[in-house]
Simulated assay, not measured.
Amino acid sequence: MIGSPVQFRDVTKVFGETVALKAFNLDVASGEFVTLLGASGSGKSTALNILAGFSDATSGDVFIDNKSMAGVPSERRNVGMVFQSFALFPHLTVADNVAYPLKMRRCPSDEIKRKVGEALELVQLSALAGRKPMALSGGQRQRVALARAVVFEPPVLLMDECLSALDLKLREELQREIRSIQRNLGVTVVFVTHDQTEALTMSDRIAILEGGKIVQIDTPERLYDRPRTRFVADFIGQSNTFDIVPGPNGTVGVPDLGVDIPLHGNAVAIALRPERLRLVDGPARPGEIVFDGHVEDETFFGPVVARSVRLRTGRLLEIRSARSGHGLEPAPVGPISLGFYPADVAPLAAD
Rank of each mutant, 00 (worst) to 15 (best):
A87Q: 12
A57D: 02
A269H: 01
H194F: 12
V28N: 04
A145N: 07
S308P: 01
D297Y: 14
S239N: 11
G325A: 11
L272I: 13
E177I: 04
P5D: 13
A331F: 05
A207W: 02
F340M: 09
L311Y: 10
S126V: 14
T299V: 15
F231M: 12
I236C: 04
P303Y: 10
T93L: 12
I50D: 02
V192G: 04
L158D: 00
F291N: 05
F83M: 09
L257P: 01
K113R: 15
G80L: 09
V62P: 03
D351A: 12
V189W: 05
G43A: 09
A207D: 06
V116T: 03
M104R: 14
V62S: 02
G60T: 07
G211I: 00
G302M: 09
L122S: 10
G212R: 03
Q182R: 11
Q238K: 14
E161V: 10
A87R: 13
T18W: 13
F340H: 07
A350E: 15
M159I: 06
R114L: 14
A284R: 15
K22I: 08
C162A: 15
V156K: 05
N25R: 11
R273N: 04
P154I: 04
Q238M: 15
V150M: 11
L122C: 14
V259E: 08
L185P: 05
Y224L: 01
N97A: 07
I112F: 03
A271Y: 02
V98I: 04
I217H: 03
Y100I: 06
R171E: 10
P335A: 15
A306Q: 15
R76L: 14
A322R: 14
L48V: 10
T313P: 08
L200N: 09
Q142I: 05
V304Y: 12
P255W: 04
P227W: 06
V62E: 00
I112M: 07
G339V: 02
G80H: 05
L348W: 03
R230A: 01
L170N: 09
T12W: 02
V6C: 05
K44P: 06
A145C: 08
L277N: 01
R230S: 01
E118S: 12
P283C: 12
I217A: 09
L209H: 05
V151M: 03
D61C: 10
L311F: 10
P90H: 13
E221F: 04
G334I: 11
R307V: 00
A23M: 11
H326R: 15
E177F: 03
F86H: 13
S109G: 11
F8P: 03
E75T: 13
S337I: 08
G71A: 08
P101L: 02
E111Q: 15
A57H: 01
R105G: 02
I178T: 01
E198N: 11
